[in-house]
Design a protein around this nucleic acid. Structure first.
Length: 278
DNA sequence: AGCTCTTCCTGAAAGC
DNA sequence: TGCTTTCAGGAAGAGC
């Protein structure tokens, strides 16, 4: 389930290989994988890769042709991967798009996504602006403590808020659980009940968890791997995700619990307090 | 305003 | 053993 760190690692690897390359074409395995802009597909042939960035959990390719920029946004959903030829998958029939280049030394990129939660969008500059405005809140690694505190002045519960892409873009279930455990905050605390100390702690922890996960190459849970086929090692540092029934890593004596409403929350009932934070 | 439920989809795992 | 059922998960939209 690619979240911010996995998307960031993917964008970095692709950027290192492909910026400047000229596009031969984009071929689709199935047309309904494109959410928006399918009629512009032919435009991309002959354009050059200008940048490859990450926004939230998505990878954003920018191409330029005759001075005009256009974009390909790859939403990864929960099973989506962007792969270079060195990466092999078990179910190759789920390759829904291939981006190939004229230079034989530039490897093609496959968009592979068995469950198809996640789509591709082909957008012009205006389209990208609208897409970003509609879907993405602030970047967790760029947001300041003051901006973050302002986002928390509401009555929403903490974990759904952290995972709400239009508020903060990039955090999914795995990292939300890991961040809240390390910040010692209960997933269902109401955001505006946090004191300034807790808000500050949460901001610091959120950024350090995401940075550390990027440095580890992400978390490979189930079938995630990076474009070059490498796995991320941050899963070895998970403290609560998927660990229901195991003793709390803080050795507090309690056992990690799992709440099964909406997305499953893993937390320590002793360490992650629900009480008002100083 | 903010929460819950439903839908999308397929492989893995549990259940019988 | 082998078939059937359930579940996981991100995002969007409906309804409360």
């Amino acid at each position: 389930m690619p979240e911010l760190p996995e998307a960031e690692v993917a964008a970095r690897q692709l950027r290192a290989r492909l910026v400047g390359a000229q596009v031969a074409d984009i071929r689709l395995g199935r047309a309904d994988i494109v959410r928006e802009g399918i009629r512009s597909l032919d435009w991309y042939a002959g354009s050059a890769v200008h940048t490859i960035d990450r926004r939230g959990k998505s990878v954003v390719f920018t191409f330029v042709k005759h001075g005009e920029p256009r974009h390909l946004v790859a939403e990864l959903g929960m099973t989506g991967l962007l792969l270079l030829p060195s990466a092999q998958v078990r179910f190759p029939q789920h390759t829904h798009a291939v981006l190939s280049f004229t230079d034989p030394s530039c490897p093609p990129v496959r968009y592979w996504n068995p469950r198809r939660f996640g789509r591709l969008s082909l957008l012009d500059a205006d389209g990208l602006r609208r897409y970003v405005d509609r879907r993405f809140g602030c970047e967790p690694l760029a947001v300041t403590k003051e901006q973050f505190a302002a986002l928390l002045r509401c009555r929403r519960r903490l974990k759904p808020l952290l995972m709400h892409q239009q508020t903060i873009a990039g955090i999914g279930n795995i990292y939300a659980n890991e961040i809240l455990f390390r910040a010692r905050l209960h997933p269902n605390i109401v955001a505006n009940r946090l004191g300034i100390g807790a808000v500050s702690r949460l901001h610091t922890v959120m950024q350090s968890v995401l940075r550390e996960a990027i440095d580890c190459g992400g978390s490979s849970v189930k079938d995630y791997f990076a474009p070059n086929g490498s796995e991320g090692s941050y899963k070895d540092r998970h403290l609560v995700y998927g660990k229901a029934g195991q003793p709390c890593p803080n050795r507090c004596g309690a056992v990690i619990r799992r709440l099964q409403s909406e997305r499953s929350s893993f937390f320590c009932p002793r360490c992650q307090t629900r009480r008002r934070q100083a």
